[in-house]
Design a protein around this nucleic acid. Structure first.
Lengths: 352, 352
DNA sequence: GTGAAAGCGCTAACAC
DNA sequence: GTGTTAGCGCTTTCAC
């Protein structure tokens, strides 16, 4: 049993009011006289009172908890999600509104039914006010139903609809719009499925534009550094070479950049570079490399916000973040992608 | 208010017992007749009953929550901690015992008093059963005191004592023990302070051995890829060159490996390579690169275990993880470091 | 072995 | 505006 935990009752008697009034103050209900409010607030500060989450949850039916559900990585592999950033962004967003974030990991290989059972147990135990299905769980209607049955709001990063786009396709389109025909693509995403989709999207975009570059300048697998350098070399040395390259990984883009510089190819004048993953290192390279990626962490924070706002049914959103010098733009339709414009993109040179 | 939430009462009446008996079953207390236990368990399964965390917390004074406290990264920087792995390992460890993990981020630049106040508020609200101070917070006695005052067990990755070692020094010693004199070091850790310490440790070890290599083969800052390749080149081409190189980052080790191969230097026969960070990519390189690092995630999971075991005061530890082919060894004194032995280390060649 | 009673700290619904 | 009364779903303590 907790030691001399100070409760709402202590505050009440210290302030000479009933505990209900104290409750009203901490929930800033409008119907409290300024005088009483002041006394209560002072007592709270003096005693260092903090309301218990568990008690509030029991009493009021609101747990002030948001549950983030994700699919764990297959054993030995790295997670496909930037969990560290999600954790940072999510806890911050929740804190700002007095909520707390909890993560639930569903085993990856697991049959759907098992994951469902596990989630059901967690929802029952934790009783979060809201649940966020992280990719690729956003499409799991069964999990959504689970929440709905319990009166728990569910959301995902794709927004309520689930209209995620294809980064590979968008990137290719963007480059094509800049006049490029010879556009290369180097895969390497953590999740091979994601790579598949990006590659397919890239191919579609190029085919639509009438280019055939995707037959020569598409690398499907994730080579290690030596292979990567060789690959870039083999693409960039010949006269007929890509004028733009899309790299799924930031590291890959950096490696290509290195090769280009070695060969005396000017970036972006003679070669445009676009990464499908953002990373601080892209900012510090020479020149800084532009990235087009799904802004997972911000989307996650936004989802947290949505859930909390829905519960609280009030307006005031939390604070927003600062800038870092790169130009950022969220691409319009058909997808939620962020283009972090730096200095590695240019119109295609006259003769490719 | 939650819909038709099924409670312990529902289970009790379904099983024809008092709710007390149900409580005994879910807490597996010994004093329940097998018959009653069976009926209750069946009712639980039939109804899909899950005890509410909040209610248990209120009733019993145990929240079954573990709080992990970490210092957030400075804005724009990446976290020094492998938060993603911590999240994975921690949630798994806690799950296994029916606990849940929560993270608390203390702003990095923040004055100590503010962080303390924030943590105090969180401890009050969440009332975790245990708290883990992640590096470098493990040394903050004030935060520990906060927990103690509330009867909350505190722990950190260094163990109760705080006897962390110096990976840079240990790595250098290990290589020296293998006969190397010309040992190089390339920094690049996320946290510059960590780099400083590793570098210092490396210098100490070399100085002790009488080598002067640290005057020529120590790179203090984290160069980008091109600079890195140049650096490796400049070290490895001359006749007097390192026979072993320590790299703080896995990526760095890989880059050096590439340069060595380009130059026709056999790894590990002519050049040993040791990374101070582990990464799946090290496993897949040619040859696989050995790593010596603080096994943060396992240590974290162990800390969770310790806290939960202390609370539960029972013996049974949770399941342990599997292997992946690399040989692992936890170095004895004076530090908690894990040597993931792969194939990039050998005794120094006859003439350096 | 089992049950009845009390209480954990809070909020919702009503009084006043 | 403020206080009073009920619970929320569990565990504890103590009877039986």
């Amino acid at each position: 049993m907790r030691q001399g935990r100070i409760t709402i009752e202590d505050v009440a008697s210290a302030a000479g009011v009933s505990r209900q009034t104290v409750s009203r103050v901490i929930n800033d209900s409008p119907r409290v006289s300024p005088a009483a409010k002041a006394r209560v607030e002072q007592a709270i500060a003096a005693l260092g009172y903090v309301p218990s989450l568990a008690a509030r949850s029991m009493g009021g039916g609101r747990s002030r908890l948001v549950l983030a559900v994700f699919e764990g990585p297959p054993p030995g592999a790295r997670p496909a999600l930037p969990l560290d950033r999600l954790l940072l962004a999510g806890t911050a967003a929740c804190r700002a509104r007095g909520y707390r974030l909890m993560f639930e990991q569903l085993a990856s290989g697991q049959p759907a039914a098992e994951g469902k059972a596990q989630l059901a147990a967690t929802l029952g135990a934790v009783q979060p006010d809201g649940m966020i299905l992280l990719p690729p769980l956003g499409s799991r209607a069964d999990l959504r139903a689970l929440a709905e049955a319990r009166g728990i709001a569910a959301d995902s990063l794709d927004g309520p609809q689930g209209a995620a786009g294809n980064p590979g396709e968008a990137a290719a389109q963007h480059l094509i719009a800049l006049g490029h025909r010879q556009v290369g693509f180097i895969a390497g995403a953590t999740d091979p499925q994601v790579s598949q989709q990006n590659l397919a999207g890239y191919r579609r975009a190029l085919a639509r534009s009438g280019s055939r570059a995707h037959r020569h300048f598409a690398a499907a697998n994730a080579p290690d550094l030596p292979a990567l350098l060789d690959l870039a070399q083999s693409w960039l040395v010949p006269t007929i070479r890509p004028t733009a390259i899309i790299a799924e990984r930031a590291q890959t883009a950096l490696a290509v950049l290195h090769v280009a510089r070695t060969l005396g190819l000017a970036v972006p004048r003679e070669l445009s570079l676009l990464a499908l993953e953002d990373d601080p290192a892209l900012m510090r390279s020479q020149p800084p490399v532009t990235a087009l990626h799904e802004p997972t962490a911000p989307l996650f924070a936004a989802a947290c916000e949505r859930l909390m706002a829905a519960r609280d049914a009030d307006g005031e959103p939390a604070d927003e973040d600062a800038q870092d010098g790169s130009a950022r733009a969220v691409l319009a339709l058909p997808l939620m992608l962020e283009l972090v414009e730096r200095a590695s993109l240019a119109r295609a040179p006259r003769r490719a």
